[in-house]
C-alpha cells in the first residue's frame, strides 16, 4: 500500500470516524450538562426562544464594531468564506466527496479556486501575524490556538502545492495534502475548531438571554 492509498483509504476512514464520533461526543457531553432554569418573567413583547435564538445567531454575524476589530471581522470572513469555496467548490474535492458519500454538485472553475485559495492562505497568515503581534491575542493564545491554525492552514498550503505541481512526485504531495486534511478532521472535535459547531449554541443562547430582557444586542 502506498502512502496515497493509505491516505485515500483507511486513513480517511479513521479520520472521518474520529471527526464524527468526536463531534457527537463533544456536543452530547455539553448538551447533557445541567441546564439552568429561568424563572424570571420575560418582557411582554419578547419573542419565542426559537425566534430569539435565531435572531441572536444572525445578530452576531456582524457584532458591534470598534475601530480595531474591523480588521478581525473582515479578515475572519475572508478566510472562512475562502475555505468554504475551496473545500466545497473545487471539482476534485467534489469528486472525492462523491466517492465517499455519493453526494455531488457543480464545481467552480479551477482558476477562480486557485485565486481564492491564495487569498485564503494570505488571510490565514494575516490572522496569525495579528495573533502573534497583538499583545492581547498573544496573551490569550496557547497551543490549542496555534495548532488549530496550523491544521487549518496546512491543507490550503499543500493543496496549492499539489495543484501547482510544485513538488514531485505528485502522488507524494497529494498524499500529504489528504493527510493534512485528516489531521484537521482528527483535531477538529478536540480543539478550537469545534467553534464551528459551538457557535450555534453560544450565539443563540445569548440571543435568548438578552431578548427575554428586551435587549437588542
Amino acid at each position: 500500500m502506498t502512502l496515497l492509498d493509505f491516505a485515500r483509504g483507511i486513513g480517511m476512514e479513521i479520520a472521518l470516524s474520529i471527526f464524527a464520533l468526536g463531534v457527537l461526543w463533544r456536543l452530547f457531553s455539553l448538551l447533557l450538562l445541567p441546564w439552568s432554569k429561568e424563572r424570571s418573567v420575560k418582557r411582554a413583547d419578547a419573542p419565542s426562544s426559537l425566534v430569539a435564538g435565531t435572531q441572536g445567531f444572525f445578530r452576531h454575524m456582524w457584532p458591534a464594531q470598534t475601530s480595531a476589530s474591523m480588521f478581525v471581522t473582515i479578515n475572519g470572513y475572508v478566510f472562512h468564506i475562502g475555505l468554504a469555496i475551496v473545500v466545497f467548490g473545487f471539482a476534485q474535492h467534489i469528486l472525492f466527496i462523491k466517492g465517499l458519500f455519493g453526494l455531488t454538485w457543480p464545481g467552480i472553475p479551477s482558476t477562480f479556486i486557485n485565486i481564492v485559495a491564495v487569498i485564503t492562505l494570505a488571510s490565514l497568515v494575516a490572522a496569525l501575524v495579528r495573533r502573534i503581534s497583538n499583545p492581547v491575542t498573544r496573551l490569550l493564545s496557547g497551543f490549542n490556538d496555534y495548532f488549530s491554525w496550523t491544521v487549518t492552514a496546512l491543507p490550503v498550503l499543500t493543496g496549492l502545492l499539489a495543484v501547482g505541481h510544485y513538488i514531485e512526485p505528485y502522488e507524494t504531495i497529494l498524499a500529504l495534502h489528504i493527510l493534512s486534511v485528516e489531521l484537521l478532521l482528527i483535531w477538529f472535535p478536540f480543539g478550537k475548531l469545534m467553534h464551528a459547531f459551538l457557535v450555534f449554541l453560544t450565539r443563540s443562547e445569548t440571543g435568548i438571554f438578552y431578548s427575554r430582557r428586551g435587549v437588542d444586542i
Partner: peptide
C-alpha cells in the same frame, strides 16, 4: 451548566 461550558469552550481568543 450547559451555557457556561459552551461559553468557556467556544472562545476563539480573537481578542475583540
Amino acid at each position: 451548566e450547559e451555557h457556561l461550558v459552551s461559553y468557556l469552550e467556544a472562545c476563539v481568543h480573537c481578542g475583540m
